[in-house]
């Protein structure tokens, strides 16, 4: 994959390193950015903000019907109850997978993604193949991810074309029976909350 990643880029990595550094220097000299704040942002998104946050939300919803009802009614407020909020998650809507509906999320126009609950998006989510295809042939895309959606289930694609960010609440798996919230959270994957995996 390293080769493929390198190949996708228009310029060698070292040139981007220099370019970003040069722009950072220029903006720092003009007092428009704080390099220390950039250090902290990198650290924050590498260590604190990620799909483990969304997994806590899902596990709580699976364990507490009243919380689940609040989550589906007002995603932003219910997620904030767990101390999770912020950039690219200011207005959250949580959509529930059921026996009748399987939801999947995309941003066809750019790369909108619910950062506070899922972290920064994986490269495939931002890639032209996913963005172009999941709206047109979601069942084929889900099959590539290893998910066969039965014909009797509706596939509902959410294109995040505005400033609302979507998270999927997966169906609670049979193996979740009797588990506590922490153990349930461990069953939840990032892709499950995008809708490209069952859980």
């Amino acid at each position: 994959m390293a080769d493929q990643h390198h190949h996708r880029h228009g310029e060698p990595e070292s040139e981007m390193t220099l370019r970003v550094r040069a722009i950072e220097q220029l903006l720092a000299e003009k007092g428009l950015v704080d390099p220390t704040a950039i250090d902290r942002l990198v650290e924050l998104y590498e260590t604190r903000v990620g799909p483990h946050n969304g997994a806590r939300v899902v596990a709580r919803a699976w364990s507490d019907p009243a919380y689940k009802a609040r989550l589906l009614e007002n995603g932003t407020e219910a997620i904030a109850e767990l101390g999770i909020s912020g950039l690219q998650g200011e207005n959250m809507v949580v959509v529930e997978n059921t026996q009748a509906i399987h939801n999947v999320v995309v941003c066809t126009l750019c790369s909108c993604y619910p950062w506070p609950v899922l972290g920064l998006p994986p490269v495939w989510y931002k890639s032209p193949p996913y963005r172009s295809r999941v709206v047109r042939e979601p069942r084929a895309v889900l099959a590539e991810f290893g998910m066969a959606v039965p014909a009797e289930q509706e596939v509902r694609v959410w294109d995040s074309s505005a400033e609302i960010r979507y998270m999927v609440l997966p169906q609670r798996p049979a193996e979740g029976e009797g588990l506590d919230e922490e153990a349930l959270a461990a069953l939840v994957t990032r892709d499950g909350m995008i809708g490209t995996a069952p859980v």
């Binding site: 994959m1 493929q4 990643h5 981007m16 550094r21 902290r40 495939w124 193949p129 590539e144």
Partner: peptide
């Protein structure tokens, strides 16, 4: 759709700097 197993948050230091 090309997916990467165990994808890092940033693939290079400059990507993190770019985000910040």
């Amino acid at each position: 759709i090309a997916r990467e197993a165990a994808e890092p948050v940033f693939h290079a230091d400059w990507e993190g700097r770019a985000l910040g």
